[in-house]
Design a protein around this nucleic acid. Structure first.
Lengths: 341, 341
DNA sequence: TTTAGCACTCTAGGGCTTAGAGTGCTGATC
DNA sequence: GATCAGCACTCTAAGCCCTAGAGTGCTAAA
């Protein structure tokens, strides 16, 4: 739908603009070896491209920059996304494989992604309340201290050291553990908590103090697991300072505030979770005028067919999509493989 | 060493400047009800204060602002630090008491401190390599998966789910656990790792595969505990955008870079760890010209007489020391009490 | 000792001017 | 008919000048 020359010039303009960040004029384009046209001819084409809405001039005597529509067209129809080389994958993998648990891993993936792209990155965390509680154990540490250990989904565990109100004996503790495993094992965290709470009132009457304090400790850990974690986290925000188009401190503040409030961005992430593969949101497509000059590149991550969350980066619309998209893709894939383990 | 009038005017100037952030002129001071002097008189005093090096004028026709020496004098001799009210303490405490483990707690304390001061905050993390390994356990999860559980110092635990190369039986696993507890229990992490590594070569010969893979898994968890954690972490950096004196994006970038490299700030934190109680570092005292317009307020935190690390905030030199210092103090105290638990 | 008065200094901001970058259009050329 | 040199035109960024206003230090009177 765009003839070769138009495409060549559009792509070249995009290339120059992504590199320099300044509006691109007709002479700059004409000078490129692959173009080989006079600036006058280039100007004619540029005028057409502007009429099509793909590029625009910030003002009369400046060059042209891509419009939002232009970016979209570039991403959808022009750009080619090559796999990053194997070194990239192995370095990402080795940076992550030491992370102990699921949360650390997700955080690590985000950190790495922010590092390799030089932009901010974000992760939509898995919904904890639908995780399945696999196993509960209590490990005696001293006379009145125990460690409460919960294993979720076979791939994540949480522990907490708790001081009990009174000394206990190991057998009793085992009994409570067996009891809880029997009734809560295999339930989702929500269901498990419901069960615990309902039991607590019963037990309170029976005055089994140990049972009571162990169960309430367990409930606290569960509650913590369900509630405390933020729905998503953003890392490397400060990297965004490096982009002039965002360097206006008022804009940046608004952006960071939007990250903190998260209502805003959550819809986007949910949407991204519906689709498979990498998605690119450009400018307003991100859901608010705050993201005017930003783009967000996301990809859901899944384990055993179940989509757990989304990994992505946030940066200026003027980002190198051809590099960023594959990086997000590969990093999310690596994350998936490490989550599975 | 400063007579009453001088002190009054100096304090008033500081008050106005902390609030407004703009240079304070003689008329503004003279207008204050508690001053009751003409602007001319005030001017004379100001000239003297300038000669003493406590205040300076950015340029001839501007008012005066405190010098670094002025801030120091204010903090050392003028300011009064009142305890924040109990509500403050309880709200901090309740924000933190759900944190599961030591790292989460420290991170939480930093987050809270950043929130209540509106500035960036930092924590120097405890030196992991001198932590004592209290207890090791392996919990079978499935045919070939186990959970490695390590308890440190009675107050922190780490777990990791590991896939073993071959199936195992529970008795064997118990044997390995007993063995490791016997030889590593009570040792510091460094010592324990040393032991494990030395044993690994021996065991490799004896071809006890289970032992081998369990021990190397344990070592990986230990290694992780020792190495991965950053020496300190900074939270709420983006809050610093709110201060005009730092809003220059070049300055901010330099500052954030300094945080990331940490060599720079680490010396300061080490120094702060030597002393008891809250310490205030103003401008260059922070150790580099990058911190020109910044101050850092720190306080070591300790458990059972042993200093574990440092909690602090970073903000503009023009911060309300009278409020910030007590907040850092109380937050660190609460952190201590929660760490002890 | 305090203060009114005054001459002086410096900055922030508005208005003006200009160099230069880039454009669109026209008419000549292949 | 496509290409392009040439030209008149537009707009910005940057430098310069000027002024209002804020604030000072000093002097001399109360």
């Amino acid at each position: 739908m765009l003839n070769d020359r138009y495409q060549l010039l559009f792509r070249s303009l995009m290339g120059l603009y992504l590199n320099e960040g300044k509006p691109v004029g007709s002479t700059a384009l004409a000078k490129l070896p692959e173009v080989g046209l006079s600036s006058a001819t280039v100007r004619n084409v540029m005028a057409d491209l502007e009429r099509m809405g793909l590029i625009k001039a910030p003002h009369t005597s400046a060059g042209r920059i891509p419009t939002q529509k232009g970016y979209r067209f570039f991403v959808d129809s022009i750009a080619t996304f090559n796999l990053p080389n194997d070194d990239y994958a192995t370095s990402v993998r080795s940076a992550l494989e030491n992370d102990l648990n699921q949360d650390a891993l997700l955080q690590g993936a985000s950190r790495v992604l922010s590092g390799v792209t030089g932009m901010a990155s974000l992760v939509l965390m898995p919904k904890k309340e639908s995780e399945v509680l696999k196993y509960i154990d209590f490990i005696p540490l001293s006379e009145s201290r125990i460690l409460v250990l919960l294993v979720f989904n076979d791939r994540d565990a949480q522990n907490r050291i708790v001081e009990l109100d009174r000394p206990f004996n190991a057998d009793e503790l085992q009994k409570v553990a067996r009891f809880l495993n029997e009734y809560c094992g295999g339930k989702t965290l929500d269901q498990a908590r419901e069960f615990l709470v309902s039991r607590m009132s019963q037990i309170r009457e029976s005055a089994n103090e140990l049972m009571m304090s162990v169960i309430s400790a367990t409930d606290r850990v569960l509650q913590n697991q369900v509630q405390q974690t933020l729905p998503f986290l953003v890392m490397g925000k400060t990297k965004l300072l490096n982009y002039q188009e965002l360097a206006d401190s008022e804009k940046l503040k608004a952006l960071f505030q939007a990250f903190d409030q998260h209502n805003n961005i959550l819809g986007l992430l949910d949407k991204s979770m519906q689709a498979k593969g990498v998605q690119v949101f450009i400018g307003n497509e991100c859901g608010s005028d705050i993201y005017q000059d930003c783009s967000i590149v996301t990809r859901p991550y899944e384990v055993e067919g179940e989509i757990l969350g989304v990994l992505g980066v946030v940066g200026p619309s003027r980002m190198d999509y051809q590099k960023v998209v594959p990086k997000v893709d590969v990093t999310a894939k690596i994350l998936e493989s490490l989550l599975k383990k």
